[in-house]
Amino acid sequence: MLVFIIRRILQMIPVLLGVTLVVFLIMQMVPGDPAVLLAGEGATPEKIAEVRHQLGLDKPLALQYLNYVKDVAQGDLGESIRTNRPVLSEIMTRLPVTIELAAASILITIVLGVFAGVVSATKQYTVADISLMIVALLGVSLPNFWLGLMLILYFSVKLHLFPVAGWGSFMHMVLPALTLGTSGAAIVARMTRSSMLEVIRQDYIRTARAKGVKERVIVYKHALKNALIPVVTVVGLQFGSLLGGTVLTESVFAINGLGRLIVDAIRMRDLPMVQGAVLVVSVIFVLVNLAVDIIYRSLNKRIELN
């Protein structure tokens, strides 16, 4: 297992380098001269040349990239054009909120998704199963930003149950987490259902039934444990769309997290901020994937044998 973890961490390095390269190249696609942009409006050619030299933009592209990677490795993501503060410290002030939101949403994704999937599979072809799967299909198709607005309209404006926007308390968390977690829950529900249906037809479940084990114990203790193995991968993948989805959810609920920082930075053409934030979120995603792989492997001993 330790060898596996070390190998996976080593495999992660080229991916992370690739991510920095893509982010670097995307920023090269920006039309116009970044030195002109950074020097500000009405800057003299001397000033522009000075900025270009300061930022190393007069050096060859490959060298610029190497310098960029060196800076990133030292935690230097540059300075925000808008606030002149280090990008990393701005990101760090916003990151905890986004992580809280993502954690609450993934919890909803897992709990709602697995529960719905199990109910559906154990009551296959009943009204409950069909309705749950229709809801799951709707869940995948709803734009989460719209769902967020509708939840605000109903639960905040009409019923006054939750605050309309902002972040800070448990009540603030409920609607954004529901908004962000629903589509993932729908996908997890569909996966859990099909996985459970496969498992509950296996011999060892029949044996457990024949031995007179209670149905609830069979479902939740014997079957679910094995059925969840493929679900782990789906949850890991969902975490990616969930992290991306924070951009929209934070915008809908006016939450000052990393997602909103990215959108504001794009609007203000604060490219170092966009570059830094996209990089940080992607690194988090790569790390989560590593964790998912490790969990998957420890759950599924058969892979190790192979």
Partner: peptide, 25 residues
């Protein structure tokens, strides 16, 4: 496939967002 792995390392719509930030809305 390593290039594809790198593109998949950008979660959700983040890659699209980064491209828009460079190309303009």
């Amino acid at each position: 496939m390593r290039v594809i792995d790198v593109l998949l390392a950008f979660p959700g719509i983040l890659l699209a967002l980064a491209i828009i930030s460079a190309l303009g809305p």
